[in-house]
Design a protein around this nucleic acid. Structure first.
Lengths: 223, 223
DNA sequence: CCAGCGACCGACCGATCGGTCAGTGAATGC
DNA sequence: GCATTCACTGACCGATCGGTCGGTCGCTGG
């Protein structure tokens, strides 16, 4: 078809294909690095999984380290996009927290390779002293959550004695362990993600103390 | 000294030295595997760090994989020892939780290499389907905590609507993220470990909601 | 039509990997 | 005193690592 203008089609197709190769390398590398770690993956593995030659990987990325950093950067920017969509609502604390928890948890579950990659990177960075751009994910998440919690506190929607920083770590940590431990603990009765978010937020908001503080042990919202 | 019986001394010393070599390999391997991951560490690295020849490592451990599993096992048993000391008190919920949080967090901080090793192992296991003995750490921690929380609940020291499983994940997750993020977030005002435990437990028990549920926003226990 | 460019590949490089093996030297049992 | 045992080593193996190089091929601007 379009024998007269194969160029247009082919040109765009080629251009796309070029981008597609670089992008496909990134995608494949993210998956493999996430699953097996930096030194657990060879350039040959990546090339094989992407269906190209090993030399071609070096044609698009100067070195394995450069490719790794490109993967981290891509991963980080994608994660930031999620965070942006969080902090601009004006709802009740319970609703907002539950919504964030659900989104954050779902994102972690959907993009487990990226999450693994990031956790691995944190572990690697823990025994060095460099600060690559990627670990800004945690800083960023922390900052956004802390700011948001502080705002809720100012609006009187959160207890005055609450510590936004500790609360942020609790929230993120609960999600992380849920995802990390999901497979190991699957024979236990670990709730599904949606239900976990709901239960988690309710417990964080209301506390788990026996209830000698105010009311009895009646739980109003049980469905 | 003891020139007449250098044998006794030397014998015991040699026997100790043999044990010491195997043990030193384990210790060194735990540190290196924890810092750089399984495939990021070569037998040569381990031998060099332990001050022995590479072949000697293979003399004590059949393969790199076998050494790795021995390290995991040793790490796991040490961790279990910590857990045992947890579940046998008869105190108030706040006191017990805070004590566990403090211990658990301190243990994580003191043995970061083992923690890193374990998290890495969890990440590796996540993309496979085998179940080595080491990931039983999480199962075990989870089970002990859940059982303990359920007991507290039966005693009426914990709210009836609390979910022991979610609470366990929250507690462990908060600790994990605290340790993992401690370095990255150190320029933020992240509290010291002791203070973090205290704040964390108080928030988990009392909740962070503004206080509209039952009573006013008076918090009785503020010291 | 053709010179140049860039995506892409096969073959190759030195280094390092996990693992083996023949041997050494000191202690032990008989 | 002699054979055995065993912790331990240096030298070596094939495989694989990250990375390079010379070259092919298809497209494009002049």
């Amino acid at each position: 078809m379009d024998r007269d203008f194969p160029h247009d089609d082919t040109t765009a197709d080629t251009a796309e294909r070029i981008l597609a190769v670089a992008e496909r390398i990134l995608a494949v590398a993210e998956r493999l690095f996430g699953q097996r770690g930096y030194s657990g993956v060879s350039i040959r593995d990546i090339a094989r999984a992407a269906g190209i030659s090993k030399a071609n990987v070096f044609h698009h990325y100067a070195s394995k380290q450069a490719l790794y950093e490109a993967v981290l950067e891509r991963s980080a920017s994608r994660f930031h996009a999620l965070l942006e969509s969080l902090a601009d609502h004006q709802r009740e604390a319970a609703e907002l927290l539950e919504d964030f928890s659900r989104r954050h948890l779902r994102n972690m579950l959907e993009r487990q390779d990226a999450l693994s990659l990031y956790v691995r990177h944190l572990l690697d960075a823990a025994s060095e002293d460099q600060g690559t751009a990627a670990e800004a994910i945690l800083e960023r998440t922390y900052d956004v959550l802390v700011e948001r919690f502080a705002a809720l506190q100012r609006q009187g929607k959160l207890a005055g004695h609450a510590d936004p920083g500790v609360l942020a770590l609790t929230l993120v940590g609960s999600h992380l362990v849920y995802v990390l431990g999901r497979k190991v603990l699957q024979q236990r009765a670990v709730p599904a993600a949606e239900r976990f978010s709901k239960t988690l937020i309710r417990q964080l908001l209301d506390g788990v103390a026996a209830g000698p503080r105010a009311g009895g042990q009646d739980q109003s919202d049980r469905q």
